[in-house]
Amino acid sequence: MVTLTHIGGPTALVEFAGWRILTDPTFDPAGGKYKFGWGTGSVKTAGPAIDPAQLGPIDAVLLTHDHHEDNLDAAGRAFLPEVDTVVTTASGAQRLGGATRGLTDWQTTELAKPGSPTIKVTATPCRHGPPLSHPIVGDVIGFALDWGEGVLWFSGDTVLYDGVKSVAQRLKVDVAVLHCGGVQFPVTGPARYTMTGHDAVELVKLLQPRVAIPIHYEGWRHFRDGQRGVERAIAQAPADVMERFRWLPIGEAVSLS
């Protein structure tokens, strides 16, 4: 049985068969102001539902990118040395150093420990902004976890584009965890940096997962298409798409079986 706990923002805890895997650790309290570069920034409006000291042992951290503090903040960065295995982008691994594993699109690594199934972790493409924005926004990846019982996929921070759509051709996704929020900044006008609710619906039409779970839509001021926006998009979706979406109460462990 797979259990997922949405801790807040992009941070989620995956538990199954003895594994405890954390995504994008963000543990700073609410109220902080952050700069993302090139005139962009945001304010954190909600702290984590679970304090890192209450988490217990973590086997691995899957970090979609290390250079934006809404995905790895100061408290999250301080937490990383407590974990034996950190997997992130190739460029992020160079910045973090140590034994951090770096992946590029479609590269894989394995997580293994006695008494639990081996997990194949595959990096999936992301584009964290409009076309040609990569030199500004940097490398980002998603993560597909496969232990032989269906793929659990975290989209990472991305807009809807051909690279993300290719996941539907290459993987059979059972559970899709989708970073939404429709991030925008005043300095860049209408440009978006993550998926909107309508994007999430379009992606679920392609993926046809058993379950689709929105995360990273709350807790920060730069989200322009938060839970209400995603809910409106889901409400307008065909019934067979609508019924796949599931909201996780923040801070509560939920079985995905």
Rank of each mutant, 00 (worst) to 15 (best):
K205R: 15
G226P: 05
F185K: 09
L152R: 04
H134R: 13
A53M: 08
T118W: 06
G56C: 06
D225A: 06
R232M: 10
A176L: 13
I141M: 05
G150R: 03
G189P: 08
V121C: 08
A93S: 15
A78V: 07
W19M: 12
R127N: 12
L63A: 08
E243F: 00
P125I: 02
D146H: 10
I234A: 00
L160D: 05
V187E: 09
V183S: 03
Y193D: 02
S91M: 11
T188Y: 14
V14R: 05
W38K: 10
G115F: 09
H216M: 06
L103F: 09
P125G: 04
Q236A: 14
A75C: 07
E202F: 02
L145G: 01
P114I: 05
C180T: 15
Q54A: 14
G98A: 12
W247G: 04
T196D: 01
I213G: 03
L13Y: 08
H198V: 09
H222C: 11
L160E: 02
V164D: 02
L171F: 14
V2H: 08
I234H: 01
L111Q: 05
L22T: 07
G8Y: 00
V241I: 15
P52H: 07
L145A: 06
Q236P: 00
P114E: 12
M242I: 01
L152C: 07
P130R: 09
G18F: 07
V183I: 15
L72C: 11
K120I: 15
E252V: 12
A212I: 08
D84G: 11
L63W: 06
I213S: 06
H179C: 11
A93Y: 11
D28T: 06
F16G: 00
R95Q: 14
L256T: 08
R224G: 13
F245D: 03
I234P: 00
H68P: 00
P48R: 00
A253D: 13
P209S: 04
D70F: 11
G31C: 00
A46G: 00
G229T: 03
E218Y: 05
I250E: 13
A12Y: 01
H68F: 11
T5N: 05
G32T: 03
H179Q: 12
G41S: 10
D240K: 10
F27Y: 07
